[in-house]
Write a protein that binds this DNA or RNA. Sequence first.
RNA 1: GGGCCCGUAGCUCAGCGGUAGAGCAGGGGACUUUUAAUCCUCUGGUCCUGGGUUCGAAUCCCAGCGGGCCCA
Length: 537
Amino acid sequence: MATVDWADELAASVEGPQVVNDSKTPSGTVHVGSLRGPVILDVITRALRARGLETTLLYGVDDLDPMDAQALLSPDAIEREMGRPLAHVPDPHGDCHASYARHFAGIFIDTFDGLGIRPDRYYWMSDIYPTGQMDPFIKTALDKAPIVREAYRRVANVRHPDHWLPVGVICPSCGKVGTTIASDWDGATVYVECKPDLVVWAHGCGWSGRVAPFGGAAKLPWNLEWAAQWSLFGVTIEPNGKDLATAGGSRDRSEAISREVFEREPPLNFAYEFLNIGGKKMSTSKGRGAAAHTIGSVVPPEQLRFLFVRNRPETVIEFDPEGTDAIPRLFDEFDRIAAATAGREVRGELPSGHENIFRFSLLDAKADAQAAAGAFRPPFGHLALLAQIPGVDAAAKAGAEKGSPLTAAEAAELETRLAAVRRWLEAYAPDKARLEIHRDAIPAEAAALDGNQRAFLAALAAAAPAGSADKPANGDAWQAAIFAVAADHGLDARAAFNALYLAFIGRTSGPRAGWLLAGLDHDFVLQRLRTAGATAA
RNA sequence: GGGCCCGUAGCUCAGCGGUAGAGCAGGGGACUUUUAAUCCUCUGGUCCUGGGUUCGAAUCCCAGCGGGCCCA
């Protein structure tokens, strides 16, 4: 059982052309956890295509849904805009977009794009309704209103009054959709009332009259709209988040309506879990949005895909980057899978689908996975050290480690990782990952130095006189000097390095000492070596 | 009150009917040059609990308990 067999199994279980769909209401920003669904859809699409099935990936923007998040509006806009279709609410961030919906949808479309998720088509419900494509579904829903009410009652235990009709008319007077109630379908028009008190979060204007609910004048309620999308686009596969999978919840309702009202078998479904941060679901409204946003800036796209791809969809992913090594480990595991995919020998067992995991983690679906897997990737932990040592040329160092110049792609990857490392050090890294040079005073821990170690430090200072031509010029030279002087004093390498770390950073281990010393001000180094070497034991 | 998912090593997770696994963490060792690197090695699990099915159960079924998300 490979870890990503869920995608291959799904692909193997269907025949013929496939239409994969997802949709989202653009009511605010997306957080990292909500990207799991789109990644899963993308992976399914790739698996279907790998099997040779003609597959279309659709992504819908449900932008005629009513505005109901007043936190994102200015106070004077709340009364005016709450309840209007998102597509008709002005962009709160000035005039960079045509509407509130376009602004926030644009953000998540850009995010998807950055993750290599490229739906064949984005459709906007605010564009679809005016074309009349939804009209047959609206008419059917109205003609079968008793069946709709019965389905709601039976599936969701929601009892609508007998005059209730499954349509949301946009008020011709105030433009709100969340405040209207329709009744008396006569085959061409419905009677509409825009009520001040239908919902608590928005207030209607009180208008009433007859409206023909077609051509964009009205929208279907969410459950019916979802079912209508399945019919309109011929959707065959649509997983959804587990939040919709509850008995009598959205999915159940829409499936019942699809069967009973639109007379179509609903698409293949499975529910996927979320991404928890520190044991809690990510939520902008619960104050975890900031963490979510930061994670996106620390974990690059390939590793983010990897995070979602390597776990089965029905398992919760626990990800707790705060003060932990979760992020470095994510990179390390990615690199291990990459190395294995490239055919290199790797420690430990591998998930049997590791080549798929790697391939599905790549942004470019058509990339040569073998070539990509073979690329040089500097270990995250190593970069975290280099980034903290002054004066280190990480690119040169990486090239030296690789043994040949970096390719353009590898250089770009290095830059990506360096940026990630810096953000990680700022936002998440545990204290032990942070390197602090004790500049002002010798660390208290240096009291643990024994006589041999002190003698070694003093001798090292003497061997590297300030200002002279033979001052160690670089990390290699320092490293050589350290080994030579240690040997003279009969000190093994471990004790010698321990002494240096204690004297400079107050720990018994640290980054490669030669480069550490080479990166520091030379006079300071000599002074510290003498001080540590001279302190009475 | 109801639904769904998950409880496997300290942590994150594989395994999903045939002798309990990996990574990381932890212990020990090697290293005259990647010293927070690398390599070797070890430790560590009543597979949540209790029943049942089976020649055989972490795996299937039932019931609890615990956690999470959602719907009421």
